[in-house]
Amino acid sequence: MILSTPTRRSEIAAGLRASLAAGLGMFPLGIAFGLLVVQAGLPWWMAPALSVAAFAGSLELLLIGMLTSGASLVAIAATTFFVNFRHVFYALSFPLASVRGAVARAYSVYGLIDEAYAVTAASPTGWTGPRLVAMQLAFQAYWVGGGLVGVAVAAALPLRIEGLEFALCALFVTLTLDACRTRRQVPSVLLAAASFSVAVVATPDAVVFVALTVFAASLLVRFFATKLMARVSGRRAEMES
């Protein structure tokens, strides 16, 4: 056990601070999720159980409907795979190397949710193990806590605030702005917009998965196109000199 040194404590505080903005979106969405679980007729404990097993909001919201209608386990497996496939891309830049210790590393990988990736992608430097893991634990606390509050609210009174889920959208808007501070990011955003449009038109039922796949493929093309252009202009410079 590592003792709590002032730096370790300040790193944990920094992690909790980094979690607040996303928490503002996750907590109300968690409440909505808890409400839905009860309203769909699932046992209340499925709210925290899903938030521990999946820990992925969009998937959990989908699973409510599937479990209620008794969907096949194969369909559940396929949906999980396709909806969460985007996480495959997160390993490329997630600062897992800053986390020491097997348990902390395992948790950090398990807790690599959209919000954790998004916050680290928007500010890629300065991460330490305690800061990163504290942020991820806080995320899970907001999400599981929100779900439990939702379950309790559903049992107590039929309250509904329209539009709270927009917090998640607003969060991603700010994170995108933070990731695009320089003009060098413009081509990526344009390719992403094109990929998203293609996915909405071609596969309205699997938009995120298809958009990310098309986007990854377009970056592949971009890489080889950049290489080719560098070689051509290099040869031209050679001929002119």
Partner: peptide, 26 residues
């Protein structure tokens, strides 16, 4: 070099896609 380029190009685009998809949900 390839993985390095992808790692620097991907975040902004992935975040933009997640933004668009949460907007679509709303």
């Amino acid at each position: 070099e390839f993985v390095g380029s992808l790692a620097s190009w991907m975040p902004a685009g992935i975040l933009a896609i997640l933004t668009a998809s949460t907007l679509r949900t709303s």
